[in-house]
């Protein structure tokens, strides 16, 4: 009985959670003129919006999905590589100015991004990288996403230090301690980092807007923006259709990641 109640509660909250999403999915199969005038189910189901939206931006939408996937996957690799290294250093190693550097790292989180947008653009423009993916990717390999570094610092600090010490007594250097002992234990944090990096990169609009100009290098959010006209009539139907389509990969990634999140610990040998 209790279990049934728990399920009912979870489902009820869940429906509230996904109502806007359901609305979007239903809208994407409605004739265009019904999207705002008819709040219920469509009078006729149609896939027109998908057909129109797929080709509307000049290239098959698959290209934009591919661009986004490319940027997102490389970003994941970059963040996993650079943020774990920095996090390990901050969490476990002793070095000069550690506190100061840590504070500096946190400070980068606190400055609103709006004011560093322009100086950063000037920097990348002078390096000749505008209209390439490089300005989107290079920062990921240099641990610029403080969020993840800080996340992993917190996770490593949550792990018992006795493990490192035991390994150190066995003659392991810091690098071996890091790769053999800590990395496997950090699996949940790594999965979170990978999933969030993927999702946030996938959704990012502003950086691609500034750095990618030609249509063939568009990522999904830029392509979606191409349906919008804030002054006149936006193409909502195709926009919703392609939005639904572009949600699918991230949803699958999340589904996949959360499974690893759950199974991760069982095999990690914390016991």
């Amino acid at each position: 009985m209790k279990r049934v109640l728990a399920h009912v509660a979870i489902i009820a909250v869940g429906i509230g959670m996904i109502y806007p999403l359901l609305w979007m999915v239903v809208s994407s199969v409605k004739p265009n003129d019904e999207i705002f005038s008819n709040p219920g189910l469509p009078s006729a189901w149609t896939l027109d919006n998908y057909v129109v939206g797929w080709d509307a931006v000049g290239f098959p939408f698959l290209l934009f999905l591919g661009n986004s996937a490319l940027v997102a996957v490389i970003s994941v690799v970059g963040n996993l590589f650079s943020c774990t290294l920095a996090a390990y250093a901050f969490a476990r190693l002793e070095f000069r100015f550690k506190k100061l550097l840590f504070a500096a790292m946190l400070a980068t989180l606190m400055l609103p991004f709006q004011v560093i947008l322009v100086p950063q653009y000037i920097l990348f423009n002078n390096l000749g990288m505008v209209d390439t993916f490089l300005p989107l990717l290079i920062p990921k390999f240099l641990a610029v996403d403080t969020f993840f570094t800080f996340l992993m610092v917190q996770f490593i600090r949550g792990l018992p230090r006795t493990l490192d010490d035991a390994a150190a007594i066995d003659g392991c250097g810091p690098f071996t301690v890091f790769t053999r002992i800590l990395l496997p234990l950090m699996r949940p944090a790594l999965v979170v980092t990978a999933a969030f990096t993927f999702i946030w990169t996938w959704n990012d609009f502003l950086s691609p807007l500034l750095y990618l100009n030609s249509r063939e290098s568009y990522t999904v959010p830029l392509a979606l923006n191409a349906f919008l006209d804030s002054e006149g009539a936006s193409q909502w139907g195709p926009m919703f259709a392609m939005s639904c389509l572009s949600l699918l990969p991230v949803f699958l990634i999340f589904l996949f990641a959360q499974r690893h999140l759950v199974n991760g610990i069982a095999t990690s040998g914390l016991k």
């Binding site: 609009f205 807007l209 100009n213 030609s214 830029l222 191409a226 919008l228 006209d229 804030s230 002054e231």
Partner: peptide, 10 residues
């Protein structure tokens, strides 16, 4: 020639 475009705000 290369053309770029975006909604008015962006």
């Amino acid at each position: 020639a290369t053309m770029e475009f975006a909604d008015r705000g962006p």
